[in-house]
Design a protein around this nucleic acid. Structure first.
Lengths: 218, 218
DNA sequence: CAGTGGTCTAGACCACAGT
DNA sequence: CTGTGGTCTAGACCACTGG
């Protein structure tokens, strides 16, 4: 069904509903339900009295992207160096954001992120261990946190990113290969899976090497 | 129809489809179409074999918000002081982002934004004059750009916000009542209405007074 | 005018939950 | 087992568009 229109240029007329009824030997309500799905996806657009047309591709709001995906979208090569991957007693703010008590197990994954070879970001991801058991137990660490969460059916379904700006601490400056006091962007993400907090991350970006962007819908 | 469930606690069972058929003396396909709309809105959720239930309120991704709306969402009072509202020859970058030639008319609205009385943001909004004719021609300026665009059926349908960080210039520091060299967040918005660029704005926030956040979906 | 999508009817059979 | 939503049929009338 989808084959009839996908690949067609935006603005192309789709076959009329009554056409499809004959072609597939099916009731019109059935045709409409199939078309309804495509309309909901934004593939088709209906105009009463005129017909059904292939829609202009919709601009999408930002989805929840990982660093790797973000960089891929910019056409730059992301690298990652793990500085720590362990079980920690979470900082109080992180425990609160994860909705966990101070004793509940939390995994931390500290990474230095490079874009095209330059150190742009230092990130600490705190993960609710109960939702991703054995994450660090394999012989190797996962290549990508979000790929691993996706593979386990735990990819975040909602997230809030909060951005502030400040200056690099001595430790941050050392890792990011910049000067103490250089301007940095601080990004905190709180990510939920099915309304349960699964990941809280704190990232520090070198402001001279990185801008952060978001696409917003209607 | 909507009255039957709205206001009910999440998790409440809705009347079954066959119930509604009898109650309204209508065909089941008709009932389903009505329910489909509520399901699409996220008000209801269906479970095959069990029934239809009032859904948990969905977390929403960020919509395109104005400064005023953003502040209202945080429970703080927004004020605005207009520093300039005029027709300008746009900076080259702005003209490009608006998809206009350097000669086409662009309106600029420069405002100082206060939150709870503190100057937190200096913003320049550049507006495609052709899409909002006579915006500044009335005896008074509009109270809110986005309210005015909404009233004219021109509220942006899509936008991209890009964030970077830096330090305040002497001019910015003077207006924002901070020190030259203080850390600031720079936010550029490119807003489209029906795929046509309508507004480009550049805002500078005092990093010590403001954080920016975005909610992301799936 | 003929053709389009929008809506509706009064049935039907299916797969699936819970008892 | 009964009741639920999921899907489907073979019609019907309406409002709207375009020639």
């Amino acid at each position: 069904m989808r084959d009839l229109v996908t690949g067609s240029a935006p603005g192309t007329v789709a076959p009329s509903e009554r056409d499809l009824v004959e072609r597939f030997g099916v009731a019109r309500m059935t045709v409409r339900q199939a078309l309804d799905a495509l309309v909901a996806e934004g593939v088709l657009q209906r105009f009463p009295g005129r017909g059904t047309f292939v829609a202009e591709p919709r601009r999408q709001p930002s989805r929840i992207a990982s660093f790797t995906e973000d960089m891929a979208g910019r056409g730059t090569v992301a690298e990652s160096r793990t500085l720590a991957a362990d079980r920690v007693k979470p900082p109080a703010g992180v425990a609160r954001a994860l909705g966990l008590g101070p004793r509940e197990p939390v995994l931390r994954w500290r990474r230095l992120r490079l874009a095209d070879g330059n150190p742009v970001c230092l990130s600490d991801a705190y993960i609710n261990a109960a939702l991703v058991p054995g994450l660090f137990d394999g012989p190797d660490l996962p290549d990508s946190l979000y790929d691993e969460l996706t593979a386990r059916g735990r990819r975040p379904t909602w997230a809030e990113d909060s951005l502030s700006a400040g200056v690099a601490t001595p430790e941050e400056a050392g890792l990011l290969e910049c000067e103490e006091g250089d301007v940095v962007i601080r990004l905190t993400r709180r990510a939920l899976w099915e309304d349960r907090p699964i990941e809280v991350s704190r990232s520090v970006y070198r402001a001279d090497l990185h801008t952060v962007s978001f696409q917003l819908g209607g």
